[in-house]
Amino acid sequence: MENFLEIRDLVVEYTQNRDTVHAVNSVSLSLGKGKTLGLVGETGAGKTTIAKSIMRILPDVGARIVSGEIWLDGENLLEKTEDEMYDIRGSKAAMIFQDPMTALNPLMTVGDQISEVLLLHNVKDKKEAMEKAGDMLEMVGIPRERYVEYPHQFSGGMKQRVVIAMALACDPELLLADEPTTALDVTIQAQVLDMIRKLRDKLNTSMILITHDLGVVAETCDSVAVIYAGQVVESGTKEDLFDHPAHPYTKGLFGSLPSMAVGEKRLHSIKGLPPDPTNLPTGCAFWPRCPYATDACKGDSAGGAPGISGREITPGHFVRCLKEV
């Protein structure tokens, strides 16, 4: 296995009041050791579901990984037993959650919450774990005396730093950062991102960064995958995507960024709304919003869509579109 993380044809569904939500539809991704992959897409596109599938922490009720393979360091995580997963979660792969306000247990001191993960994996002795948790707090810029304080005594930015300290406590080889800065204000965002980047480089961690923010992707990632309606519509290196976007959706995303140079009056947007995941359009999921859509994009009567399965336009740059660039 050349890649550290390789996801193949992952399909995840949620069941809700007898409706099936097609959250992730045959997603394939790969990530090298020490590299960072950005997952970009609208809310509800399935980004968080992909990350939770890797950790296998999707909710028990309603969520189901239908098919696919997730290879981490040569092992298929989807074939592991729950007991084997306990040793991977938090230690080999760790996750930073989106909302720091709710990601911490309000009834436990922040220090104990960091020690908890240490005691589960690296450290046997309680004293040593407290010592190490104190080190982690200092690493993210929180004085170690605040070990005994509770989450309600921390600000949002500090809580997110605690969450980051918790995720990095056991030196994970894979870090899943699920919109780590969305809930923070802009100045704190820059600090937190900077810290994540430094820690990643120090520990040579591979990272998947989930975000809406293309600026963050440009600063942080090596490669990018654009997710739309549970599918990777375009993926490639950061340069491929930023300089030569091929899929109409990716182009639309970049087109939505206001340009400071031109002095525009109105913001551009992609027309329409993301499709209802319980009832995806046949063929290409994007055709109802796509300015270039043709009859071929709508799929055939059987619901299939010949040709819309992804093409490699330049080495390593994949796009799921019929249109020739």
Binding site: T102, L104, L107, E116, M166
Partner: peptide, 27 residues
């Protein structure tokens, strides 16, 4: 049971029984 900090606890690799006892029940 669906609170984010429960997912956090699971993501740490905590055993389900301990998650129930230490994180869910007190809350």
């Amino acid at each position: 049971i669906r609170a984010d900090y429960i997912t956090t606890a699971r993501a740490k690799g905590q055993r389900e029984k301990v998650v129930v006892r230490r994180h869910m029940l007190p809350n």
